[in-house]
Structures are given as C-alpha cells and as structure tokens.
Design a protein around this nucleic acid. Structure first.
Length: 584
RNA sequence: GGGCGCGUAGCUCAGUUGGACAGAGCGUCGGACUUCUAAUCCGAUGGUCGCGGGUUCGAAUCCCGUCGCGCUCGCCA
C-alpha cells in the first residue's frame, strides 16, 4: 500500500507544480520524522522559494492549495507545517493493508520476469568453513531470498575453484603424505579429515630445502598442466579431493541453511574450450599487450593501473581468465548475474568487469557486491594456517546456549501448553542458528566485524529471538482465538487506537522495504525493519488484547491484524533465512 | 606510497538520492507479570556524527584536506 500511496503523492506533487508553472525535476518526497503524523511529506518548497520569490512556508501553502486529490485513492488530506507539505493516508489505505496482509505471501512483489543467478560463498574447497567466510553464505543466501521476494526467478550458484594452484597443492599433498604423520581430525567428516593434508602440504612447502621444494613444485606444476591440457586422469585425481571436501563443507552450509541450486566447477570452462576462446578473443583486442612472455590486458582505459595477466608464460590460464568464460556463460543463460564477494576480491572484480566489456558483453547484466571480513579479536582467520573458529563450532555453541535459555525459562512459563523434548530441540535450533544469522545479516556488509562470542550469541539484544518471539506470540493468540471461536475480519473501521494504526502502517511499509532492499542488495534493511516491526507489535500486544477486546467486532479485526502481522514478520524472517517458531 | 572501504552515545549498530530537535539495543538507574507467553513493556541517563576547512536557505549525508583502522597493489585465488 505504501508503494501505491507514495506514487500517488509523487503524481499529486508533480501535477501541482506543473499547474503552478514550477519545475518538477525534484519533488522532495520523503518520510517525515516519527512525531509528525503525516505518512509522507514534500520539502519542495525550500528549493522553489528563490524562484517564486516567497518564503518557503508560503510556497508550501501554494503547493498544498494546488494539489488535486480527486484521483487519489489513498491520500485523505494535505496540509502544511511550516515549509513542509504533509500527506495523510485515507481509511482505504488501512483497509487495503489489512486485506493484503491476510495473504500468506504478503510482501512478495509481482513477477518481474527476470532470471537472476546469485553466486555466493564459492569458498575454495580446501577445508571446513570458518566464521571469517561465513558472512558470505549468510549475506548471499539473504540476497538470493530477497531477490526472489522482489519477483525475480532466482538460481543460486556456488562456483567451485577446482583448477587453481591451491587445489593442485592439495591434490599433491593428499597423494604424498601418510595419515600417520597427521594430527587427529577435529571432526569425523571429510573436510576436517582432508584439510590436515592441505595444511601439512603447505607447511612442507614453507620449510623444505631447495631440492625438496623443486621436486614438490614439479609435481604441483604437473597437476596444473594436466588440468590445462584436458587430461582426464588429472581431473579425476583432483576431483577425489575436491568432491570429498566440498561434500563436508556443504554439510556445514546446509545447517545455516545455505543451499545451492548448482555447483559450477571452474574446470568446466577449461574442458569445454570456453577459456581458450576467451584467450583468443582477448589477444585480438586493442588492449592486449605481450610483456615479459605473458599475455596481458592494459586496462588503463578503464581507470585501472594494474595490467591483468590472462595467459601465463607457460600458456596456462589464470583464475580470472576462466572466470571470464564463466561469466559469459552466466550472461548467456540468465538476465542478470549477481555475485557476493569478499572485499579482498575488489580489484579482481573490477578487472573482470572491464575485461567482460572488452569481450563485447553488456556489463549492466553484472552486479558485484562486497562484504568486509569477519576477524577475531586477535586477527584474521585462515584455513591454510588453521586459525579461526569453525562455523560448525559456532553453530553448536549457539544452539547449546539457546537450549540453556529455553530450559531456564521453562519454570517461569505462564502458558499452559507443555513443551515436549522435540519442541525444546526445535526452539534451541531455531533460536541458536537464527541469532547467528541475524547478528551477521543485520549489519551493513561494508563494515568490518570483529567476532566475539558474547556479542554474537546475545539473545536479548536486537536479535533474532526478539523478532521470533513476536511470531510465536501471534501464533499463540491465533490458537487461543480459534479455541474461543473468534473469526478474523478485515474491518479496519474498529481499529482506531494509536497502537493499532501504527501497526497497520508498519505492515503497509513491508513491500516497499523489500523493494528498496532488493534494489540496493541490502538485506540488512529488512533486518532493521523486522526489529522495528517487532517493537511496534509488542506495544500493540500490551495495549490491545484480542481475546479480551470490548466487543466481537474489535476482537475479530484485531485478530485479522495479528494474522497480517504474523505474515509480515514470518516473511521478513524468511528473507533473512531465519525460521519463525510457532512457540518459544 | 597509490587505489578502495570504514570512523555516529561507555559498548554494538541504524540513519548517508542533502531537509522538520541525530535513533535503537546493550550497560547504568527506576518502574510494570491474578490480564492473548516478561526472550516483553514503560521511564530516566547518555552524542564536539574522527578532526579541520568549503559548498548550501539547510550537511552525519556532498567537496577538499587531515588523522586512525581494514582491504588491496602476484604469471595466487
């Protein structure tokens, strides 16, 4: 409703300005502060004061006078407050909000007909997912869900880096070292098992003498050349390692849950010749230079100082070369390609975009968005060095602490329903994992995060459980109301308290929040909305009882509002990938 | 050193297409459970929006400079 109201306001202001022969390039439509009763306002009078030759409040008066509300369905009235023109919503706005909110899909926008591939995580298959990387699947999964809610046909991809040097090192190490030389694995799972070889191999390369090092490097180079040459046996050797480790990593990611429609292997673009094709076409481009025995792109025309090497002197391709072929494949198969990357990939991403342009692609199809690393107070996390907190450990600890909370609260629980052991398991999991996700997804991705246990697992603060609790409360009310034989209505005329109106206004905003968050690829906007919505609901909850309402009509309408609230909060959580518990 | 990002209350963060007194949570202090679940609510406390200039009727938001932190500048990914 808010979106319709906003466009009505924009149309009305534009028409009024046109009628007054004033410029309409900036309508100044904005949301007023909370203590102003209007839903939208225009500050256009400030800018026109000079042109009109009158003080802003007088201009605001003129604009307000000129506004024609005959065609507006949702604008009830217009007035001015100093230099501002304020717009108030009509009853139809509330009525239509309440009806729309009763749809379980509320918040989802109409189909755009656009197909979008969201690539996220794509962590190198070298070992268990650690918390430093975990921002990617949590942020990326939320972006994918958000774009789906915004009406797109979304597919999620994990691009598997199975052709780089690190995989060659890993394969060599796996085939070279004996299990007896390794420490016990931290968990009984393939990624924890195999990462020991990877770490051992890297240690060896750092400490070996010249002769040993040369032999090892030769073995590693042979694997890389084998991949480049399309040698089947080499692919199989590498796949033994990659598929096992990736299988383990997927189990961690599925706990979040972050699931993928496709795992696309980098080697695919070597094997099918696309990477070679990219090399050929780049060599022909006017930006290609051959320096120091390697083929490079001079990207100074794109404002990038560093050359991009796309073919090594030994004729093997580099990650970015293969990624170019990968992106052309995405462009061919999807309308838009969104990629979630760590900030350390920013330069490479700019080079990729420039090179895609050189290859003749429409780079408007590409949107790359970045997040800052999650660090520990003592520094960064590294799979190779084995430093950091594993995602599995974080989730286990969070669920454990959530369970303690649930059990502590059992005694003081007023509600008459008995929680079974299964309920306790479910709540601990929903709350524990939800808290971790919310902690990460609620912050602007560009801001750095220092991981601290206490803060990540604080269930009281602005957190998932606070929002989840609202959903549980809605479910509780609806279940009691059903027992009492109350049937929900959409009769908004009996909902006239401040708390009820405020809640309706927040319900009305939800689709606009989805739209804005999707446009900007910023799921944290939805997280902020969810928290504010929960606040508004809790005030309503305290002041407006459904079961003890003064009369049946009020009870029925409030029940309708509770239902709309439940859909709003459930879908806001769904965008964030957080479960909505029926009871807590 | 060059490029990019970040710097808002004691702490963790919203707010940045320039607009109505800069907002939350945590913390601290004080209130509210015979009332649909108190993982809740209400009140109080708390800010030179890193710092200095500039543009503007108006700047946390834009521009310049400066300081601090992060990332980056490989024939790695």
């Amino acid at each position: 409703m808010f979106r319709t109201f906003r466009s009505e306001v924009e149309d009305a202001v534009e028409a009024a300005l046109a009628a007054l022969d004033l410029p309409t390039d900036d309508l100044g439509v904005e949301e007023p502060p909370e203590d102003v009763p209007a839903t939208l306002a225009s500050s256009v009078a400030f800018r026109l004061a000079g042109e009109v030759g009158a003080p802003p409040p007088a201009v605001a008066e003129d604009v307000a006078e000129a506004i024609d509300l005959d065609d507006a369905e949702y604008i009830a009235s217009v007035d001015t407050q100093g230099p501002y023109v304020n717009f108030y919503v009509a009853d139809a706005y509330y009525a239509d909000t309440l009806s729309a909110g009763r749809d379980a899909e509320y918040g989802a926008l109409p189909d755009t007909g656009q197909s979008v591939v969201v690539e996220h995580t794509s962590a190198n298959p070298t070992g268990p997912v650690h918390v430093g990387r975990a921002r990617n699947p949590i942020f990326g999964d939320a972006v994918a869900r958000l774009l789906e809610y915004a009406g797109n046909d979304v597919e999620t991809h994990y691009y598997v880096n199975d052709a780089g040097r690190q995989v060659a090192v890993f394969t060599w190490a796996y085939e070279t070292f004996e299990e007896s030389e390794l420490p016990e694995p931290e968990r009984d799972r393939a990624d924890y098992d195999l990462v020991r070889y990877y770490r051992k191999g890297n240690e060896y390369l750092e400490s070996a003498d010249d002769e040993e090092l040369a032999a090892a490097e030769e073995a590693i180079a042979e694997i890389m050349q084998g991949l480049e040459a399309g040698d089947e046996e080499t692919y199989e050797r590498v796949a033994v390692v990659v598929d096992q480790v990736l299988g383990g990593m997927r189990e961690s990611l599925e706990r979040l849950p972050a699931e993928f429609d496709r795992f696309v292997k980098e080697t695919k673009f070597i094997r099918n010749g696309d990477a070679d094709d990219v090399v050929r076409r780049l060599k022909d481009s006017e930006h290609a230079v051959y320096e120091e025995d390697a083929w490079q792109l001079d990207l100074s025309a794109f404002g990038l100082e560093k050359n991009l090497v796309f073919l090594r002197s030994d004729d093997t391709t580099l990650y970015t070369t293969r990624d170019l072929a990968h992106h052309e494949w995405k462009f061919d198969n999807y309308d838009e390609a969104v990629t979630i990357l760590g900030e350390d990939h920013k330069l490479q991403a700019e080079q990729l975009e420039a090179a895609l342009d050189i290859l003749g692609n429409d780079t408007d199809q590409l949107r790359q968005t970045f997040y800052s690393w999650v660090n520990l107070p003592e520094g960064g996390m590294s799979t190779r060095e084995g430093t950091g907190v594993d995602l599995d450990d974080l989730l286990d600890e969070s669920v454990r602490r959530a369970r303690e909370e649930v059990e502590e609260r059992l005694d003081s629980r007023i509600r008459s329903d008995e929680l079974t052991d299964d309920d306790i398991d479910r709540i601990a999991r929903q709350v524990g994992i939800g808290a971790v996700r919310y902690d990460i997804v609620s912050k602007q991705p560009t801001k750095g995060i220092t991981f601290e246990w206490e803060r990540a697992l604080d269930f009281e603060a602005q957190s998932a459980p606070y929002v989840q609790y609202v959903h549980a409360r809605c479910c509780g009310i609806e279940s009691e109301a059903a027992d009492a034989g109350i049937e929900a209505s959409a009769d908004v005329s009996v909902l006239d308290t401040d708390a009820e109106r405020a809640l309706l206004r927040d319900v009305a905003r939800f689709p606009a929040v989805i739209e804005q968050a999707a446009d900007d690829l910023e799921p944290h906007v939805v997280a902020t909305f969810a928290r504010e919505f929960a606040e508004t609901f809790n005030t309503f909850y305290r002041e407006c009882s459904v079961l003890n309402a003064d009369d049946e009509a009020v009870a029925a309408a409030r029940l309708g509002l509770v239902e709309a609230s439940r859909h709003t909060v459930a879908n806001a959580l769904d965008v964030l990938g957080i479960e909505a518990p029926d009871s807590m």
